[in-house]
Computed example of a mutant assay.
Amino acid sequence: MRSALVPVSLAAGMAYPFWVYAVQGRVEPAWIMLPLSALWLLRTLLARPEEPGGRLLPAAALAGCIALSCSDAQLSLRAYPVLVSLFMLAIFGGSLRYGPPVIERLARLREPELPEQGVRYTRRVTQVWCVFFLLNAGVAAALALWAPWSWWTLYTGGISYALIGALLVGERALRPFLLRAA
């Protein structure tokens, strides 16, 4: 069940901006946020307590979704991508503090005996992701507050995912060169 929850959560998150845009003004915000709350509740219940953030981070996201669902404002619908970016920032930032960094854990799946230069490199990459999630949350918040719905939808449903993809692909392409320089 836990392994099936990740792709379902990812798909729901990616579809969310388009779904909100399509039903805006026709559906109360609570009816949009409550299904997401149910997904976060499942993630909270199925989280491994020994992992960094364990149940605390998904429980915080659940509380955020519930708080957003209690608001009748359309602005609360636009706040969800900000919440997700801050959630990801907490995961990546927490891993820097309590270790090992997220990117190091991913690198060790492929290379269990990661050399010291690889450990330093993966720490820096995790820091880059933290900056990205902070900036992404800021842009999403600014668009939520001041931009038309179409701009918010375009950014949170497309551009932000394209930026994530570019960061993933770019880092992967540059990794051999950057590791040699580290």
Rank of each mutant, 00 (worst) to 15 (best):
Phe87Gln: 11
Ala182Pro: 03
Ala173Glu: 07
Tyr155Leu: 03
Trp152Glu: 01
Ile32Phe: 06
Gly165Met: 08
Leu179Asp: 06
Gly53Val: 11
Arg26Trp: 09
Phe177Gly: 06
Ala140Glu: 07
Pro52Leu: 11
Leu77Gln: 01
Ile159Tyr: 09
Val23Pro: 09
Val102His: 01
Pro7Gln: 05
Leu42Phe: 15
Gly13Asn: 14
Met33Lys: 11
Leu10Met: 13
Leu36Phe: 15
Tyr155Lys: 03
Gln117Glu: 14
Ala162Glu: 03
Ala59Phe: 04
Leu62Val: 00
Gly158Pro: 02
Pro112Glu: 02
Trp129Lys: 07
Arg26Met: 15
Gln127Ala: 15
Glu28Asp: 15
Pro58Ser: 08
Ala162Tyr: 00
Trp151Pro: 14
Leu143Gln: 04
Pro115Lys: 01
Leu57His: 08
Ile159Pro: 08
Ile32Met: 14
Leu167Ile: 10
Glu171Cys: 09
Trp151Thr: 13
Val20Pro: 05
Glu113Asp: 10
Ile164Phe: 13
Arg108Asn: 02
Glu116Asn: 07
Glu111Arg: 10
Leu106Val: 00
Ile66Gln: 01
Val84Arg: 03
Thr44Phe: 11
Ala30Leu: 12
Trp149Glu: 13
Pro58Ile: 09
Arg2Gly: 15
Ala173Trp: 12
Gly94Ile: 06
Pro52Asn: 13
Leu178Trp: 14
Phe92Gln: 01
Leu42Trp: 13
Ala173Ile: 14
Trp152Met: 03
Ile32Arg: 05
Tyr161Ala: 02
Pro29Asn: 14
Val131Tyr: 06
Val169Lys: 01
Ala166Trp: 08
Glu50Arg: 13
Leu68Met: 15
Glu113Leu: 02
Leu168Ala: 08
Ser95Val: 05
Tyr80Trp: 15
Gly165Ile: 08
Cys65Asn: 00
Trp40Pro: 08
Ser37Ile: 05
Leu163Ala: 12
Leu96Gly: 02
Arg175Gly: 06
Ser37Glu: 03
Ala182Met: 14
Ala59Ser: 05
Arg108Ser: 03
